[in-house]
Design a protein around this nucleic acid. Structure first.
Lengths: 334, 334
DNA sequence: CTGAAAGCGCTTACAG
DNA sequence: CTGAAAGCGCTTACAG
């Protein structure tokens, strides 16, 4: 048996589809006596409105598409959590897609979301994306889009990010004040905004303190736990070993931690750590890590609120760059 | 300017909508010369097919709805990852919704997904759900639904779960063989299938070894890190302290770990641990934890494959109960 | 208070 | 090879 439609109910009750539709939406046009009969029938038949049909007419879906590189990275899980939670409060549904850090997958996801006619898109860019043509397609489709965390400047979209450069500078500067001199950096990927900015802040802090930047101590190889392990190994193979490692995110830090401890090194005695991270994750480390404290949940909420504003405001205010400030939180890894 | 439609292009090229539609889908009906012209125009105008319209006609969306209690629980992040990844390979999109362990939110999510006309639903039930009426609505809507991890038996739906009872039994039995006698259990919520089964397995192992079940040692209070902390505190306040704790999942274990270490206790010297968990999470613990090794990614993949089968197979084979076996993996927490 | 008409953007028979 | 007709399930003017 096919699913109940307005037409089915109209026939059963000998009224028109319009009346059914109005009654179900509690439109004042319909008498309350009729409304009751219609609602009762709807429940009896298990009628559910077909949003597809409704959306086709209204040309709105109340649905937001999200593109993230990797949800096994808990930073993005928490960000998606923030997005879903605030979307729900605003009456929006979320479609989550994952690029797996692949340019082609990212493009495919974006095109699918546009074809699904989502009302807007939230994206954190893949580390391997170099071709930005798909974003001109997004522009043509007139789908509002907001970058979050990993942004793409100069494309004319709004972005929500954190003060990567300053926070990196501050953290490394703090470490230098504490007496550390030999400071390495597990840098993620410099093809991303966060990778670049955090690395720049790190270098700036060294230079301002009259320390030289040692190229072999800047390891660029991704954002995963595995990358942290490999990165630490590379670093520790060198004759000239650092005293402290500045890590680009919590996952890289946890990989480096694990590898250091596997090698029998003491933290912070043999090797100290400081870097970007967030409490739900890095507080579990042993010892807990001194972090530039990110708040992925808040980032997700802010990104959604910003996108919602773009969707619902008629006036085109032009792209905005929203930057969330971050604080240093001291623990015992450094 | 509104988005380009088939009609727009038809007018520009002086052919019918049907011809445009066919050309774009590479239908043999249209001459290749015309196809080229049409495709060129489509690219120029940035045409993207409207899936809403397409779906309304086809009465399929190639979209699957997922309902999970909490994505900040990384078990579910990994499961969702597995679902999205295999869905992508099969050409399906995923809509993720979160119940926040609330019955009302779960019901709302389910109704929304049905109205969105998803082709199927994957759900892990909230710990606070007692009223199952919404599932009769799902039945009426004829939307295929598969439970995963936390299931609801006897409702006539297919489920994909793990052998909770046997695994719990085996783990606790192993601990007893190793010489532990005073074994407590942080039990999650007994209102869920996994909570019940794991607790039953734990009790069975005690009884089979002629140990008594101590009620005060079975702490029922949820599945989060916070619950693990509280649970451990409750346990440790007691005069009669256990030697080992059997934990219902990795998050509860990590909370208990953190609290134990905060109190200055040595693991496994002062208090040992064994329990359900998965490597990506529990291997980060210090010391790494002896676990009944779950694989949320695989669970997600299996759940999706099972649902896909139900969607695509015409023959109604009736509900199936798929149970994945789990292995004990020895580390140093016990 | 009730309903006939038109349309959202597609696709599928079917006719030529 | 090309297209006119009908319809997917709704909603919005508009007329009565």
């Amino acid at each position: 048996m096919a699913r109940t439609t307005l037409a089915d109910m109209a026939k059963l009750l000998n009224v028109s589809k319009v009346t059914i539709s109005k009654a179900l939406r509690n439109h004042p046009d319909v008498s309350s006596e009729l409304k009751t009969r219609i609602n009762d029938l709807a429940i009896e038949l298990g009628y559910t409105p077909n949003y597809i049909a409704r959306n086709l007419y209204s040309r709105r879906t109340r649905t937001i598409g999200v593109v993230v590189p990797d949800v096994s990275n808990s930073f993005f899980s928490y960000a998606v959590h923030g997005i879903i939670d605030s979307a729900d409060k605003a009456g929006y549904q979320i479609i989550v897609t994952i690029s797996r850090e692949e340019e082609a997958m990212e493009r495919k996801n974006l095109n699918t979301l546009i074809s699904m006619r989502v009302d807007g898109i939230l994206i954190s860019i893949s580390q391997n994306t170099h071709n930005y043509d798909v974003f001109t397609a997004v522009k043509k489709a007139e789908t509002p889009l907001v970058f979050f965390d990993r942004t793409l400047p100069d494309l004319g979209f709004t972005s929500v990010s954190v003060n990567d450069y300053q926070s990196a500078f501050r953290a490394v500067n703090y470490a230098i004040q504490k007496g550390y001199r030999k400071i390495a950096h597990l840098a993620g990927t410099l093809n991303t905004s966060i990778g670049r900015e955090r690395c720049n802040g790190y270098q700036k802090a060294l230079l301002e303190n009259n320390l030289t930047v040692t190229d072999e101590w800047v390891i660029e190889n991704g954002f995963t736990i595995e990358d942290g392990k490999n990165g630490f190994e590379k670093l520790w193979k060198q004759d000239n070993k650092p005293e402290l490692i500045f890590t680009v995110n919590g996952h890289v830090a946890s990989g480096a931690y694990a590898m250091a401890q596997k090698m029998g090194l003491k933290i912070p005695g043999d090797i100290a750590f400081i870097g970007f991270g967030f409490r739900e994750y890095t507080d579990m480390f042993n010892p807990p890590m001194t972090i530039i404290s990110e708040n992925p949940d808040l980032l997700g909420r802010t990104a959604f609120a910003t996108l919602l504003h773009e969707i619902e405001s008629k006036t085109n205010e032009g792209p905005k760059q929203i930057v969330l400030p971050l604080e240093l939180e001291l623990r015992s890894s450094c």
